[in-house]
């Protein structure tokens, strides 16, 4: 009997055990992989030639640089919500919006704290943000603008983490952590899109084509590329099954697309002054 069998046994008695112990367990299993880069095995499927696109011009390859990139985005989100929640009269009092935005604020601050702790002394300092983007927006005096920027940040965050995930292949712990933040950003995005929908924005919790959902034209780069409807050479639009024909809208909604490092930075830099 080896150590992993013991984990299996405990898991049976305590289904949540794995959730708590998984980091260490992963570390134990990863030990053998330390110092080696996981080899790309010959692809068993005829999908090898996919994703010829190079996601990123100056893409960092160092894990810590990727985490600092993530930290920069989390700083931006955390400060944005912290300021928004603290601005008197911005969020309609007595509505569920207060709790929702407070929850998101807390999640983003937790992400910042997590990444800062992980990076320690090599963590980048928090930039100085200008959420008006040099006077283009007034998020802290106009609630709809605030929600629009929030959605923009969340949808960008989802694409940014997705874009970096492949660069973490073989590093189970870091990749696992990145994925666990990625899906939370997607939950936030879904809720913010619903909040804006309830206020009249013609959009859904998922992204249809490259539709910016009523966001200003400056936000279009956040959605460009989301209109892809062929995945790994499989054309999704027009698939017929169970009496359903998959529409182009559904085909694009069903898959979120990654965004390159450089493209994410271009968007983020609109709000960074130093």
């Amino acid at each position: 009997m080896n150590l992993l069998n013991i984990f299996e046994q405990i898991e049976k008695a305590d289904p949540e055990f794995n959730e708590r112990i998984n980091p260490r367990r992963a570390a134990i299993k990863n030990m053998a992989g330390f110092g080696t880069k996981v080899a790309m095995s010959a692809l068993p499927l005829a999908l090898g030639s996919l994703f010829q696109k190079a996601y990123g011009q100056t893409q960092p390859t160092d894990v810590n640089a990727i985490l600092n990139f993530a930290l920069t985005l989390e700083y931006l989100e955390a400060e944005f919500y912290t300021m928004g929640v603290a601005t008197p009269g911005l969020i309609p009092a007595g509505t569920p919006d207060v709790a929702a935005l407070t929850q998101i604020r807390d999640d983003e601050n937790h992400h910042v704290a997590f990444l800062k702790s992980v990076l320690g002394t090599i963590a980048v300092a928090k930039p100085t943000f200008d959420f008006t983007a040099k006077g283009s927006f007034n998020p802290f005096s106009n609630y709809d603008v605030f929600l629009a920027l929030a959605q923009a940040f969340e949808d960008t965050g989802v694409r940014a983490y997705k874009g970096q995930a492949p660069n973490l292949v073989g590093n189970k712990t870091v990749l696992g952590a990145a994925l666990n933040i990625h899906s939370v950003e997607a939950r936030h995005a879904s809720h913010l899109r619903q909040m804006r929908r309830a206020r009249g924005a013609n959009q859904k919790p998922w992204i249809t084509g490259k539709d910016p959902g009523g966001l200003p034209a400056a936000a279009q780069p956040i959605y460009n590329g989301e209109e892809l409807d062929t995945q790994a050479t499989v054309k999704i639009t027009g698939i017929v099954a169970n009496g359903v024909t998959i529409s182009q809208s559904a085909a694009t909604e069903a898959f979120d697309e990654p965004l390159a490092y450089g493209d994410v930075l271009t968007i983020a830099k609109l709000f960074i002054t130093g």
């Binding site: 790309m40 999908l47 997705k162 492949p166 292949v169 990625h182 899906s183 997607a186 995945q231 990654p258």
Partner: peptide
């Protein structure tokens, strides 16, 4: 282990979220 497959899984998981 494949970056392409991981990207595909990533494209789907955020939609599930």
């Amino acid at each position: 282990t494949s970056k392409d497959y991981l990207t595909l899984a990533g494209k789907i998981v955020s939609v599930e979220a």
